[in-house]
Nucleic acid binder design. Structure first.
Lengths: 192, 192
DNA sequence: CAATTTCATTAAGGTATCTTAAGAACGCTA
DNA sequence: TAGCGTTCTTAAGATACCTTAATGAAATTG
């Protein structure tokens, strides 16, 4: 179960045997059934989280009860309310399993300990966060400059594996449109 | 001139005298007149960049020639086409001075050298990037869930210092609307 | 100081997306 | 397999935002 996690880290930085062992000791598995919450708005987010199996969503809910999906996460991705984690303030987001999932998570205290013990852990999260930042920048510019149709097409080709695990109305939320509108867009596309 | 940079780093991590000295040696100043480019699409982005003085914009241009501002940067901020920097691929963005500016920049080779010499430099950029990621996530969710009017009001209260340095049509571009539309929104707001 | 460029405003008509409402298809679960 | 919740589709009318074009104000330059 930890192989995916260790492999994910070793893709970017070397780890000693000691470090690998520590990581395995510090990360704890959490199993979630479909629709179960890993984090709810208002709670504190004290763990850094790696998805071992399944599919989850990170979203928030506004005053009117509308849901906005900020991010999906699947096997091999990191997912968190990072603001709440870093500041220790109450979460503003929800993390919920879309399918049955397994998450490996490490408590902030343990991770900070790892950071002090291991230069490479700082480096790993530096690079990982830089990559995430770049991806989010690209999404931002795409949201500004492309039509919903283009963004839909890009999503389903780039993240086919995610698309296959989520209902269409969640993808609509992620893309920032209503499910009704996404449906009409798809209709137009089918007739070429 | 380097005080702001060193101070910026020391806000997040401790630095030894040696490290501070190295940083001062490795970062080189670049002076830009108004409208001058620090980076153009197609060039390679080989430096990590810190704004010492002035105000700049990071933007791209689509096939039709339309400009989309991804980010502004002012004194004390880091600004870059991070994707181009990390991958060594040609830049897709432009960085241009809005006002006369001074930037301190370090070549990737030197920064990588610093990363290997100093655990704290890895940590600094980890934390800095995490904070940037969180800010960008918040912008993303705001773009999804708030009206242009709300986003405009938030920008001018939160970034009053930026707003005072940029023309209104650039803020419109950043907010993802036309200057004409932003103008009508402002008109509505003035009459309460 | 005059000339020129840059920037902001206004308005009319067009397009994209939303809201609301209803019904159809699908997949669980009793 | 019948029933129920979940998801997707369709359509009409409403709203937000864009496009184009024109004007005026402000800032920059010669």
């Amino acid at each position: 179960m930890y192989d995916l996690l260790i492999g994910n880290i070793k893709e970017l930085v070397p780890l000693t045997e000691d470090e690998s062992r520590l990581i395995q000791n510090y990360f704890e598995p959490v199993h979630l059934k479909k629709k179960q919450f890993l984090l709810q708005s208002g709670e504190s987010s004290n763990h850094m989280r790696f998805i071992s199996q399944g599919c989850l969503k990170l979203y928030n809910i506004d005053e009117l009860g509308a849901e906005y999906i900020l991010q999906f996460g699947i096997s091999g991705w990191w997912l968190n309310d990072l603001y709440a984690y870093l500041t220790k303030k109450p979460a503003t987001y929800f993390i919920q399993a879309i399918t049955e999932s397994t998450v490996l998570q490490i408590h902030r205290d343990k991770l900070d300990e790892l950071f002090d013990k291991s230069h490479m852990m700082d480096r790993f999260f530096r690079i990982k966060t830089q990559n995430g930042y770049v991806a989010l920048q690209e999404r931002t510019i795409n949201n500004m400059s492309q039509s919903v149709e283009q963004r839909y097409l890009e999503f389903i080709t780039r993240y086919r594996n995610i698309e296959q695990q989520i209902p269409q109305y969640m993808l609509a939320s992620y893309l920032g449109v209503t499910p009704e509108h996404l449906s009409t867009i798809r209709k137009k596309l089918i007739g070429h």
